[in-house]
Amino acid sequence: MEEKKTLLEIKDLEVIYQTDEATVHAVNGINFSLNEKETIGLVGETGAGKTTTALTILRLLPERTGRIKGGQVLFRGENLLDKSVPEMRRVRGAEISIIFQDPMTALNPALTVGDQVLESLEIHNTAGKSKQELNARVDELFNLVGIPAERKAEYPHQFSGGMKQRIVIAIALACAPQLLIADEPTTALDVTIQAQVLKLMENLKEELGTSMIIITHDLGVVAETCDKVAIMYAGEIVEAGTVEDIFNGKEHHPYTVGLFNAIPNLDEKEERLRPIDGLMPDPANLPQGCKFGPRCPHFTEACKAQTPYIYEEKEHRIMCNLFKKEAADE
């Protein structure tokens, strides 16, 4: 089997939002890597730092408040955090694209959808293609995402949510990026459309060989689309591994266990769902030691004292003291 090439590597990334009132620790030293043609799922509750991670990769954090405190974002070996603004512009849309969460607001209401797809092509038209060639590519993209090309002269308000998401996907794919970040691509859509959009993304991934980061809180989406999974909690990756590790592995972080328990199971008769008790800590005021500690059923004084032990087995990494004990027992 050929050696897989690393496309993206994130090292010790730390991001805060600095406001007058508080310092919000959104991402606290996360590490993960993604190979070519692979898909990774970033899973976690709202506020776990998933979107912040995505925005940091593209350097699209809000200018006034977002600060990258440390770490590296290596894309094909180059640190994106060192790039100048014009250099970064050539990466955005061309090599790394993003699909935002809400298709309803992601398109400019004043421009035709065709023009919005065309814009992406025009910005990165380094080959100097003619307007006709670019327009032909727009038609091609519309066909690719399953919208009749005649509709490109229409405005966003004339399309349904699922159709808009397809257009957003067409914009993201316009320049055949190597990495596609999908930030909750199906959350705002209703269930039948969700399946369609996921199917579409899956097909495109296979056809174009794009790597993907899928941000979601839906474990079903992950099981269907991802090769790797990183479970995020309070700005940290508490567990990471292959889909196999997360869904069928023996060892799990208590948070992951909680997430799975919160999914209704049709095979067993269950009176009610078992949600994880408590709320995610305020990222402006994180607990010491293990951030999941206050909600964890296995919480001990040791968890409070220091950053948790990191259990590793091949690609499977779990950040939890539970496994330290076991290691000591053996």
Partner: peptide
């Protein structure tokens, strides 16, 4: 608005 972020994500000036 989100569409302004979309435009920036395209690499627009």
């Amino acid at each position: 608005m989100d569409y302004v972020r979309t435009a920036r994500a395209k690499g627009q000036k």
